[in-house]
């Protein structure tokens, strides 16, 4: 490979046009920063997106990019990845694009385990269409389209991904640059569909939706950072933990006889644990990190293997022989 790339090699010549203060800037910066670490030449990288604020992302990456139509990015990326397994494919989507109009494509891409990264920017609102509630907005949300409050029960992106048999599921926060970088790295390492929920602040239509997780004063008491093999501990003073009480998780204060040994140890390979963590609600903290990671053959890999096996078995197809197949007869 040629000389190592730097962050600015991944910055395109296009002016970034998100609203000032949008969480998308932080995500873009971190993605551009992390890309050189992967050591993949720019021409081998493709960003595919749908429609929405997040989906402008490819224009700002100096790689190959395809800004497609609403919700369809996972399907378009599937066709690309299957026929071009040599490419490093990233799907960028949002809570509306990925979970509403494109929900069907998202769940099928995850269950098939197509080898690409899906970055879902979740701001719990429709930004580009100016402020309607989204499939991740909470019940009671007052927006332009729900003046009396939303009566729509929201999706939890993590449980949707787990329920779709995704092989890699994680969550991070736009402003948590270090954690975001780690999650992107883990997602990139994974073979198969990697699902990364990025909690992202829309400062225009849903400002502060994730304050508990991004406000430095309070976040430590609300955020549970998942680390494989480590006990579930959180809190400003690292003095709170998660313990099982019969079959339910509860928050316990460490000390007074409660030690780390009493706490749940995170295991990324435990699907039941992943589901339990994904469903944490206050007073339980909000987990971030890798919920679940497992290994399963990829769709694109399996399909290309079928093609290779067919060629190994029958030889590369001969067109004339194919045309002449079946019962033929000669007319003189």
């Amino acid at each position: 490979m040629a000389t190592a790339l730097s962050r600015k090699d991944f910055v395109s010549d296009q002016e970034v046009r998100w609203c000032p203060g949008c969480g998308d800037y932080a995500i873009l910066a971190q993605v551009q920063r992390i890309m050189p670490e992967f050591g993949i030449p720019r021409e081998k990288i493709v960003f595919v997106s749908g429609i929405g604020c997040s989906s402008r992302f490819p224009y700002y990456m100096n790689t190959y990019g395809f800004h497609t139509i609403h919700g369809r990015a996972p399907a378009i990326a599937t066709g690309l990845k299957v026929t071009r397994p040599d490419l490093d494919v990233w799907v960028v989507t949002g809570d509306g694009d990925g979970l509403s109009i494109g929900g069907n494509h998202l769940i099928h891409a995850l269950r098939r385990n197509v080898d690409f990264k899906i970055l879902l920017f979740n701001n719990r609102i429709y930004g580009l269409t100016k402020g309607q509630y989204s499939p991740t907005s909470e019940v009671g949300k007052v927006t332009k389209s729900t003046p009396a409050g939303s009566v729509d029960f929201p999706f939890n992106p993590i449980t949707v991904a787990l329920g779709s048999s995704a092989t890699f599921v994680c969550r991070t926060v736009d402003v948590e640059q270090k954690h975001l970088g780690e999650m992107l790295k883990r997602a990139h390492q994974h073979r198969g569909a990697s699902f990364v929920e990025i909690l992202q602040n829309c400062n225009i239509f849903n400002d502060g939706a994730f304050n508990e997780l991004s406000d430095k004063q309070i976040k430590a008491d609300h955020q549970l950072v998942l680390e494989h093999g480590k006990p579930l501990i959180f809190g400003k003073n690292k003095d709170k933990g998660i313990r099982m009480n019969v079959q339910r998780a509860e928050v316990v204060q460490l000390g007074n006889g409660v030690t780390e040994k009493d706490l749940v140890v995170h295991d990324e390979t435990n699907l039941s644990l992943a589901f339990m963590l994904a469903n944490f609600e206050a007073p339980l903290p909000t987990p971030v990190g890798v919920f679940y990671a497992t290994s399963r053959p990829t769709y694109d890999g399996a399909m290309n293997k079928q093609l290779a096996d067919a060629k190994a078995k029958s030889g590369t197809g001969d067109l004339q022989e194919l045309l002449n197949r079946g019962d033929t007869w000669k007319v003189n």
Partner: peptide
């Protein structure tokens, strides 16, 4: 939709 969308992705990739 995914039928045609995947084909568009494949076309982008040169198939």
């Amino acid at each position: 939709i995914a039928g045609v969308a995947s084909a568009i992705g494949a076309a982008f990739g040169g198939a």
